[in-house]
């Protein structure tokens, strides 16, 4: 396989009984890309993402994530990816340090690595003074940044972010995206779902899902040209107009 394709799927489908949540999607994501995965609620993007993360088995199709087969090597995939769910995913009753230590333990980092990376992480976020603070008492924006940093603590090849900036103010969202750029520059591939169209503009490439299928996939600039639209928002609305599935 091509080493530079971190994610590569072909005709991936997921059926729940009669309902086809994901309908034969195919795409590739290259190393270091920030890949935006867009779609209205119910378009199937979360289901697709869960299959890529090894949380759900595809009904048919094939694919690899970080070089491992999604049908047979789910455990290996989990070792090499990071995941941040749309709901806040740290433990509020534990301190910043306790959360970091837990995830370091889960991904098998040794003591020295854990300490070094913790210091790096806290310096990057300017969080040093908060190391003994319970996460529950941090502002939401800080929590999200911390959650992202923890999800990439083990230096995964690809990190999956499921609507990471939901409910966060614009300034913090901006800061959050700076973190994403930093991670991508360091070679981590970022796979992100969002419904903020301004965020879609930040992505290297964007795919738009409608009714379980990928209807468009390109760089934001080319997509705007293709649909003769001024913004990603317009592109999205053009595509979503003929969606059959309601919310």
């Amino acid at each position: 396989m091509n080493r530079d394709k971190v994610i590569s799927v072909k005709n991936l489908s997921k059926k729940f009984g009669e309902f086809i949540a994901v309908d034969r999607i195919s795409f590739e994501v290259e190393r270091g890309e920030i890949f935006g995965f867009l779609g209205a609620n119910g378009a199937g993007k979360t289901t697709a993402m869960r299959m890529l993360c090894g949380l759900s088995y595809p009904t048919s199709g094939s694919g690899t994530v970080a070089g491992y087969d999604i049908m047979t090597q789910g455990e290996e995939i989990k070792r090499h990816i990071g995941y941040m769910s749309q709901r806040f995913s740290l433990y509020e009753d534990l301190t910043v340090w306790e959360n970091i230590r837990l995830y370091a333990g889960i991904y098998g980092l040794n003591r020295r690595q854990t300490l070094r990376r913790t210091v790096e992480l806290l310096d990057r976020l300017q969080f040093r003074s908060e190391i003994r603070t319970r996460v529950g008492s941090l502002p939401l924006g800080w929590k999200q940044k911390l959650a992202f940093s923890v999800a990439t603590l083990h230096r995964p090849e690809v990190v999956f972010l499921d609507e990471p900036t939901g409910g966060v103010d614009p300034v913090t969202r901006r800061q959050f995206w700076e973190l994403i750029y930093e991670a991508a520059a360091a070679g981590t591939t970022v796979f992100v779902t969002t419904h903020y169209m301004d965020e879609a503009e930040y992505c290297s490439r964007v795919s738009i899902m409608v009714d379980g299928q990928i209807r468009a996939l390109d760089t934001p600039t080319l997509l705007k040209q293709q649909f003769a639209a001024k913004s990603m928002d317009e592109v999205f609305r053009t595509l979503a107009r003929d969606a059959k599935r309601g919310e």
Binding site: K78, Y83, M84, S85, R87, F88, S89, Y103, I106
Partner: peptide, 13 residues
Amino acid sequence: ETGTMEVLLASPV
């Protein structure tokens, strides 16, 4: 409910 279970399940544990 809080969503942490999903993160744990997406981890190699």
